[in-house]
Design a binder for these strands. Sequence first.
DNA 1: CGCCAGGCTTCTA
DNA 2: TAGAAGCATGGC
Length: 287
Amino acid sequence: MIAIDYKDCRAAPEGVLLEGVGCFSLPEILDCGQAFRWRAIGEDSYEGVACDRFLRLSMEGDRLLFHGIGMEEFEAVWRDYFDLSRDYGALRERLAADPVLEKAMAFAPGIRVLRQPPWEALCSFILSQNNNIKRIKGLVERFCDCFGEEREGIRAFPTPERIAALEPDDLAPVRAGFRAKYLVDAARRVVSGEVSLSLPYTLPIDEARAHLMQIHGVGVKVADCALLYGFSRVECVPKDVWINRVMEQLYPDGFPEELADVAGIAQQYLFHYARCCPDALAARGAK
DNA sequence: CGCCAGGCTTCTA
DNA sequence: TAGAAGCATGGC
């Protein structure tokens, strides 16, 4: 048995139940700016749509329940989505060698980096540009409501084929502004095969980034977000205003090189720490 | 009202 | 090649 962050996993009457769960916090994972279709529905309980499936989760202590699903769906979809095959316990020990990360991880020990479908991550972060998280959620939701296929009461994520057939003006109801044309361009390049949704998993990271940046409206930041959150390239560190502040103030001599292969996961702890911990950074306020 | 937001493209010097 | 302007929209 490999060392992972839960001790037991079984089918229960209410769904799939994980026990002895560590390194896992629903609010820290689902509300830290990596995915935008989840919403809190109570105390440590969330619901949302990802991978074109609806899911409700709740956590009590070290017990995590995936409501209304069976083991097949858990194994086929959600174990991977929540990165439950990665040993965050061991990873956190490694990252804790760095004193800044030690603080950041103490602030939010339950963060994980999701493995989202690449197309969903790409579109979400195209919509994210020059926006705040609150508004990004609204944009993604309207994008799905307007152009996602309805299946059993939920909206799948809009397919590249559907979006490629539209003109930017057709996206007006999303109110994405100048980002609408970027979504259409991304969809058309994916449909034509010019942009691959599989190559970036394995290309050398600089080539993977350049590959995605063929899309009009995808720059370094959005490409890195798609690589990290969509293609699981955990060496990738998207550099937004918060991470820039972290690097300037907390890593004046640079980020530790020996952690470069997992810097993207470290980045997620640091991003959340910088945004939400009042005294993480000097005189910037948190919110 | 003004400032800012998990930026990118285009223009200008 | 670097720096600034413009872009759409809305939260606070």
